[in-house]
């Protein structure tokens, strides 16, 4: 049996880690006698932001991490961040092959799969959101908890007052009013207990989670064809099943939050389209700038957008 060591970027109790551990169990079952994944731990074993380097250097063979944690090495990860497609669609149209090609060229790691896709981000606020005459969000008076992933959107487009706080300090920040709004994925707010302070969810949602499995390329190439096939097949199946599981979970959490008094504020028509355009354009501009500074293939930018963004779905 060949064994791959693995780490995950988030604590074991987090829903995304649970999803990865399900994938590991499925591989170990399907790969009995051929391939085994040996999970060595989460951020307590290797720091979240050091895991991609650990895979690159061969200290571990595999990591389950957001692309945003290695944004410095691979600016193209913003194609996944801004995506409005699911992993299954991107697998179908060749998007995942393309992002794998870029991972192999830039970092010497194989991109095995994009899990937990189809989960997007909302803006969550404590106070009633105010809309201007055109129905756009007015962000004055909002103290928004920031994060490098979405700051380009928050500051450049929304013009909000962004306050950087580590995730661990957000609870205290909301409690004392240091911040009164935050971006966060559709699921997980209840686990963090931020719902004790948050009263409004703003729709539409934007962006996407960008969690994926990367494998050291030398190690990947040294595996038997049989082992690679098992890993690939289980990964493709998990791309589909994890997206479905999260859709159900999201519906359940939204229901629970709304039952407890969470109000949904929906931007309408042109305002909604502007909002989504602001989110993706600010981030694409950042990606284009960084890609030009670290040249690889000139036409990658357009190909990435084409594979990971569906303009028809966004309504322009």
């Amino acid at each position: 049996t060949e064994t791959l060591t693995a780490v995950h970027a988030f604590p074991s109790t987090l829903v995304y880690t649970q999803s990865f551990l399900e994938f590991v169990d499925a591989v170990n079952e399907a790969g009995d006698g051929v391939i085994r994944i040996d999970v060595r731990g989460g951020p307590e074993a290797i720091g979240s932001f050091q895991q991609a380097d650990a895979v690159r250097d061969g200290v571990v063979d595999m990591a389950y991490t957001p692309g945003s944690f290695y944004a410095g090495a691979l600016p193209e990860k913003d194609a996944l961040v801004t995506s409005n497609r699911t992993a299954a669609e991107a697998r179908e149209n060749g998007g995942i092959d393309l992002i794998n090609e870029i991972h192999e060229a830039r970092m010497g790691v194989h991109y095995l799969g994009w899990f937990d896709s189809g989960v997007c981000y909302n803006l969550w606020t404590v106070n009633t959101p105010r809309l201007d005459d055109a129905g756009n969000l007015a962000m004055t008076d909002v103290r928004l908890r920031g994060n490098p992933v979405y700051n380009a959107f928050f500051t450049d487009y929304l013009g909000a007052q962004v306050i950087d706080l580590p995730t661990g300090e957000v609870f205290a920040g909301l409690e004392r009013g240091v911040v009164n709004a935050t971006g966060w994925t559709q699921i997980g707010l209840i686990d963090l207990r931020w719902n004790e302070f948050i009263n409004y969810r703003i729709e539409p949602c934007f962006f996407s989670t960008d969690l994926g499995v990367i494998v050291n390329l030398e190690r990947w190439n040294a595996l038997s064809e049989e082992a690679r096939a098992i890993l690939r097949d289980v990964a493709i199946a998990h791309e589909i099943s994890s997206a479905e599981a999260h859709r159900d979970r999201r519906d359940a959490e939204f229901e629970q939050l709304e039952a407890a008094g969470m109000t949904v504020v929906e931007l309408e028509g042109e305002a909604a389209a502007e909002y989504l355009r602001g989110a993706r354009e600010a981030t694409w501009n950042r990606m284009r700038g960084l890609m030009e500074a670290q040249p690889l293939e000139a036409d990658h930018f357009d190909r990435l957008i084409e594979h990971f963004y569906d303009f028809d779905r966004a309504g322009g």
Binding site: I46, G47, F49, Q50, D53, A54, D57, V59
Partner: peptide, 11 residues
């Protein structure tokens, strides 16, 4: 592993 250790320390 020693390189990793320095990276972890930096983190």
């Amino acid at each position: 592993g020693v390189t990793q250790m320095l990276n972890n320390g930096l983190g």
